[in-house]
Write a protein that binds this DNA or RNA. Structure first.
Lengths: 258, 258
DNA sequence: CGCGCATTTGATCTAATTCAACCCTAGTGG
DNA sequence: CCACTAGGGTTGAATTAGATCAAATGCGCG
């Protein structure tokens, strides 16, 4: 019964190819932005011709990370922003008392490091949740190119604003919704983001632990586990380790929407 | 004993003068950015000479609001960002289920409307908590000027990033700290912001209701009230209606810091 | 002067945490 | 090949922080 769960298969197969290097931090200049399958979701979206070439020139450095590796750490000088090419990341804020809190999950196309711009140093840990790859965008390159290319400026500002909007939604979630709503909405939001990347609309693979989810949602991992079990018992979803199937999307939406 | 609490008096008296117009929405061209006492805290910070003049030209429109008036509402097309000149604002997110949540408080120098850029429409209510005044920054003007003036671009991006950082701090607060820490940190953060504006370091006037604070911190207003009483009973602060004195800043900091 | 609203305080209730035991799965080494 | 282990995950019982319900107080304002 438990066999075969290849439901969430590869999305639009990107040009990333099979160059599975085992060397850490190995730069990869294989493919430019012009041929990248993510271009419509990345900061370069909307750019064409010479503008896109200039962007590609700036973003030609890539970096591979294995699961658990750190892309940046708090206090490190902000040199670059990063676009997730493949894989998943989480950011973890560590309070100076030692307590830590997952502040976000980042999928292909998402921009990492935006919160570091204000202080000039990274303020959280950026950690790969699976073997992943990022494009490196030198901060000064981004700013100077944004100065020259109005479309890029608009997009940069838009992305920053979108992050603020996203945080406000999460704030509302944490401040005024109970555990079941938080978990249901977390699943639906994540599935929606994966869906835009070409994955199934009613299945989901969680690259993060229950503990990560709990921290992100301001709950204990036990509570997250319990809520998942409850939703399962009610027939809203099926769970196999980290693979989730939405068996009744409408009722799940209803559970998330209040 | 209860007499006279003019502790939190006027900060660096601005050039705003006494033109107390009673006409709503009355534009005010009285003073330019060149002479504004807030210039060091506003988006124009760092600009000089022709750049500052161009900014002043763009931002010459002001708007006055009375307590309770709305600066913008969700769904309204994003035409402008607003810099608070004087007074205080809150932003309130209204979920489509009707539930509402205070997402931020804005003091002189703060920029309102940043979260609206991504969607192109305002996503929350902007409401004056006292008689207040804002500078109107037309969105297209901001973008085109940012294109031409690298310092302004940097500042715009910095301010956006700062808002993200602030939200992440609040997320951590809501997700992992108990009611007392939340309230104590709220007071200290607010006092710190007022302090940068020239107000006393260990006194605070709350322009918002307990209910607003509660909503912002993800608590009930009763809990906020109880926590304040508790802090008072322990001798950390003195309270007269909305005026707060920090009697023991170090212990209050300790209460906020875990 | 009295009404309405914000605030405080008290009593009860509940959702979620905490503590603890157990299970499952993947990876490891004999 | 299979037993062993470790970490993630699930489940149960007890505890508690904060919400909710309710009442009393105080203050601002018409």
């Amino acid at each position: 019964v438990l066999l075969g769960h290849p439901i969430t298969t590869e999305p639009v197969p990107g040009p990333a190819g099979g160059s599975q290097s085992h060397a850490d931090h190995a730069p990869d200049h294989s493919s430019g932005c012009e041929t990248c399958s993510l271009s419509s979701g990345c900061l370069s979206r909307g750019l064409r011709g010479a503008d896109l070439s200039a962007f590609a020139e700036m973003a030609r450095l890539k970096r591979k990370l294995h699961r658990g590796e750190r892309l940046f750490r708090p206090g490190g000088a902000l040199a670059s922003l990063y676009v997730v090419c493949s894989g998943t990341f989480k950011t973890v804020a560590v309070s100076h008392e030692g307590r830590s809190k997952t502040t976000g999950f980042y999928l292909p196309g998402d921009l990492l490091g935006l919160d570091a711009i204000a202080a000039g140093v990274y303020v959280c840990d950026g950690i790969a949740l699976e073997d992943s790859e990022v494009c490196v965008l030198p901060m000064n390159g981004v700013l100077s190119l944004a100065s020259a290319v109005p479309d890029l400026l608009k997009e940069l500002v838009r992305v920053l604003s979108a992050e603020i909007t996203r945080d406000h939604r999460l704030l509302t979630l944490l401040a005024s919704m109970d555990a079941e709503h938080r978990v249901a909405r977390f699943f639906l939001d994540l599935a929606e983001r994966y869906h835009r990347l070409g994955y199934s609309k009613d299945a989901l693979f969680l690259h993060m632990t229950r503990e990560d989810i709990a921290s992100y949602l301001g709950l204990s991992s036990e509570t997250v586990s319990r809520i998942i079990s409850r939703l399962r018992r009610r027939g809203l979803l099926t769970v196999h380790h980290r693979h989730i199937d939405f068996d009744d999307s409408s009722r799940l939406t209803q559970a998330a929407d209040w």
